[in-house]
Simulated scan of single mutants.
Amino acid sequence: MGMVGCFCALEDEDLQAIISVPRRIHLLWSDSIPKRRQPSWLARLFGAKLRPEPEEDPWQLSQPVVDADVDKAWHGIHFLLTGTEGGGEGPLAFMIHGGEDIKEEIGYGYPRGFTSQEVKEIAAALSVIDVDQLYEQANPADFARHGIYPEVWKDEPKEDCIGYVTDYLKELQKFVSDIATSNRAMIVYLA
């Protein structure tokens, strides 16, 4: 399956509600928050205590979310935008850095939330990126040397491997621009 870069557009108040009660992030994809497992009878025999059931959370999203993903191109996009495999600062490093951690692990680590204002900054930074120029300048050997996921750079022609990354970058530019125009927040995570 692999690691997929995922994005979710939502309202600022919904993002803040999720940050304040991180388990609410599960409501983006299901009808209920998962319940904590109780210790088995054997665990209780050895001293584990029953936990009280969590209270029902009446919170609901104020508006439907809009999801997008960049498949496995997320790391290549980060590399194209920042020139680093895991570093970078500012709005163009949003694939890996920035925003506020949502302290509920999903997929591969904590998702990160960006306010609508931060999304506007990301959209502005992305809007001046010439994706075709990035494609021309990109060298698959650089991606391979830096260990950029999904590590297909030696096996595929440039139009396939780098083209895969830049095609998704174009889609991501549009998605971020659309949610910035709609004044929405964004959650970024790896699934």
Rank of each mutant, 00 (worst) to 15 (best):
Y108M: 15
G86Q: 09
K154M: 07
A9E: 04
V165Y: 01
L134W: 10
D130A: 12
H26I: 01
R23M: 08
T82W: 04
L81I: 11
P64A: 10
V65P: 00
G90Y: 07
R51D: 12
E53A: 08
I19L: 03
I18P: 00
D12V: 02
E151G: 15
E11A: 13
W153Y: 02
P22Y: 00
G86V: 04
L169C: 02
V131C: 10
F94I: 08
E89M: 08
I129M: 09
V21Q: 15
T115E: 09
A73N: 11
S40L: 03
K174V: 15
F46Q: 06
W74A: 14
M186T: 03
Y135N: 11
I96E: 01
A48R: 15
L92N: 07
A141E: 13
A93P: 06
I179R: 05
Q137R: 14
K158H: 01
D31Y: 03
G88L: 12
M186A: 00
P111G: 11
G98N: 12
L61S: 11
L10V: 04
C8V: 15
A141P: 03
P140K: 11
I129T: 12
G76L: 07
N183R: 14
N183Q: 15
K170M: 06
E100K: 13
E85K: 15
I122H: 11
D130T: 06
I106W: 14
E11S: 13
G47D: 04
A9R: 00
I122S: 07
G5E: 00
Y168S: 03
L126W: 09
E121A: 15
V176K: 05
A180H: 01
A138P: 07
P140L: 08
H146T: 04
V21C: 14
G107P: 07
W74R: 09
W59I: 02
S30C: 08
I162M: 05
L172V: 06
V128F: 04
Y108V: 12
I122Q: 04
I106H: 06
R184G: 02
G47Y: 02
D101L: 06
A180I: 01
Q137W: 09
I19G: 01
Q60N: 13
N139A: 14
Y110V: 11
E159F: 00
Y189I: 00
I19D: 02
G88H: 14
E151Q: 14
Q133K: 11
K49I: 14
A43T: 10
T166I: 08
W59H: 02
K154L: 15
K158M: 02
G76E: 10
Q16R: 05
L61C: 11
D67C: 14
W29R: 14
R184C: 01
A43G: 14
A185R: 02
D71I: 12
F94N: 08
V152P: 01
D155G: 05
W59F: 12
E105I: 12
V119N: 04
R51T: 12
E171I: 03
C8T: 12
W59N: 00
